[in-house]
């Protein structure tokens, strides 16, 4: 499946030196167009049109009731803050995305060796929706003195077999990044689990104060 990128700024999912980005085809021969930051243009002739998402929903880019949206999907390659992008691509379909477009997008990413999952157009997709409340709880527990950071991280590694603990992970990815992701979900869902925790909020403000 040939694809091409339309980028207006560096992609969070596929940086310039990324093998998948480098393997793109010429625009005329591409069956899939991937919009990254650039304004999306519908194109019925393509097997699928993909829009790279950050913290926003696909619905911010397209109206799923319009017939031009039928081959459009959102996507994000999961990435913990500053960490390198993972091997996971979350494909976002809206209520009227065609099965053909989903299959084409899935095939393209799978052929490049990515693990592909499909989710509906809800804030936080799968991973952020699930991990942000957990990381927020861990940061709150740390403030409340439940345990030391080292003991909380060790507990998750030894007790649950995680490759890294929740606090070390958030700190490594950047507390200010965590603040933005958490805030976006808090605005979407309004539940306290997504409210940015103190440690993330102060890190964000500290960065701003220091410039």
């Amino acid at each position: 499946m040939r694809y091409t990128f339309v980028k207006s700024k560096p992609s969070r999912s596929f940086p310039e030196d990324d093998a998948f980005f480098c393997a793109q085809s010429e625009p005329d021969t591409a069956e899939i167009v991937i919009f990254s930051g650039a304004r999306f243009k519908p194109d019925h002739a393509k097997a699928a049109i993909l829009i790279e998402l950050l913290n926003e929903c696909l619905g911010e880019h397209i109206d799923d009731q319009e017939s031009t949206s039928i081959n459009v999907l959102g996507f994000a390659r999961y990435r913990n803050g500053h960490d390198k992008p993972s091997n996971l691509v979350e494909l976002v379909r809206h209520a009227n995305t065609s099965e053909k477009a989903v299959a084409a997008a899935r095939e393209m990413f799978a052929a490049a060796g990515f693990e592909v999952v499909v989710c509906s157009d809800q804030a936080g997709r799968i991973i952020d929706r699930l991990v942000i409340p957990k990381y927020n709880a861990a940061l709150r527990f740390l403030d409340e003195g439940l345990a030391s950071q080292a003991d909380m991280d060790l507990t998750c590694k030894l007790g649950l077999g995680y490759p890294d603990g929740p606090i070390e992970r958030v700190v490594r990815g950047g507390l200010a990044n965590h603040y933005h992701a958490s805030k976006a979900l808090f605005e979407a869902y309004g539940t306290s689990a997504f409210a940015p925790p103190r440690r993330a909020s102060v890190a964000y403000r500290r960065d701003k104060t220091r410039g």
Binding site: S86, L88, E90, E115, V117, R125, I126, L160, P163
Partner: peptide, 19 residues
């Protein structure tokens, strides 16, 4: 909430977080 099928949720967590 219909976010995804159970298999996709589990695969996302394993591939994305290394669980």
């Amino acid at each position: 909430a219909g976010v995804a099928e159970p298999a996709d949720i589990d695969r996302a967590i394993k591939a994305g977080l290394g669980y």
